[in-house]
């Protein structure tokens, strides 16, 4: 089923996609002429498949549950923000804060992602085939950020327990983020993730980064301050 955003309003299209009749068989949709509009495919909650042909604006596929959304173009700020489950694939580049606060599911960006990719992520898996901008995985709590290309300055600043894997160069690490040993367990986890997402990469070529746990843990030395 096709929706042309030159002919239908975004609200009509989103409402249709958010309320798909389970008894009907149509679970495949295509959106044409997105023209950079905001919140395309936001709030989907069913196991449907949506292809967007063109560039989207902010918060594309935000709050997604179960749905698979593929964007044949670039996406604006906050793609898949606060996503719960499902899969979002971006064929082009992503703007800032891709996958912000995502709880689950997978976000795959085939191009580059700009600043603060995975900010405050809470369990989502984000795979960026290109590079990520500065302050990526800022305050990231849970989940995996996998970068095939390079990471710009201050990667993983104030990170909690999310894991970062980078194949290329890291310009600099943010506060309390350190390189960690890539052991057998980590290689196994990454192999599993690649298999699940159908990605052919060698996990051994990645370096792992994570929290030094100096910032967010209570230090007994500071007890006098309270």
């Amino acid at each position: 089923m096709n929706f042309d955003l030159n002919k239908k309003t975004l609200r009509e299209v989103n409402q249709h996609l958010q309320n798909v009749d389970r008894k009907k068989n149509t679970r495949k949709f295509e959106i044409l002429n997105p023209q950079g509009q905001h919140a395309i495919c936001a709030g989907l909650k069913d196991d449907i498949d949506v292809t967007v042909k063109g560039h989207t604006g902010y918060y594309c596929a935000g709050m997604n549950q179960k749905a698979t959304v593929t964007v044949h173009g670039n996406v604006g700020t906050g793609v898949a923000e606060n996503m719960m489950s499902g899969k979002i694939v971006v064929k082009g580049n992503a703007s800032q804060s891709a996958g912000a606060t995502g709880h689950g599911g997978a976000l795959i960006i085939e191009g580059d992602a700009s600043s603060r990719c995975g900010i405050s992520m809470k369990g989502i898996d984000i795979v960026v085939k290109g590079s990520v901008g500065h302050m990526s995985a800022f305050m990231a709590q849970k989940g995996n950020l996998v970068v095939m290309g390079d990471a710009d300055a201050d990667l993983g600043d104030s990170i909690y327990e999310a894991k970062i894997f980078v194949k290329g160069k890291v310009k600099s690490l943010g506060a309390d983020c350190v390189e960690k040993k890539m052991d057998k367990k980590n290689i196994g986890e990454l192999t599993k993730l690649f298999k699940k997402l159908n990605i052919s990469e060698d996990p051994k070529k990645f370096k792992r980064y994570g929290s030094a746990r100096n910032l967010y843990n209570f230090k007994i030395d500071n007890v006098g301050a309270y």
Partner: peptide, 22 residues
């Protein structure tokens, strides 16, 4: 500031689109 401001430009969908670095 946003892509939607340039969605009407000729051949923009095949343009090289990027976000300027800080």
């Amino acid at each position: 500031s946003e892509f939607q401001a340039m969605a009407h430009l000729p051949n923009v969908n095949s343009a090289k689109i990027f976000e300027p670095k800080p």
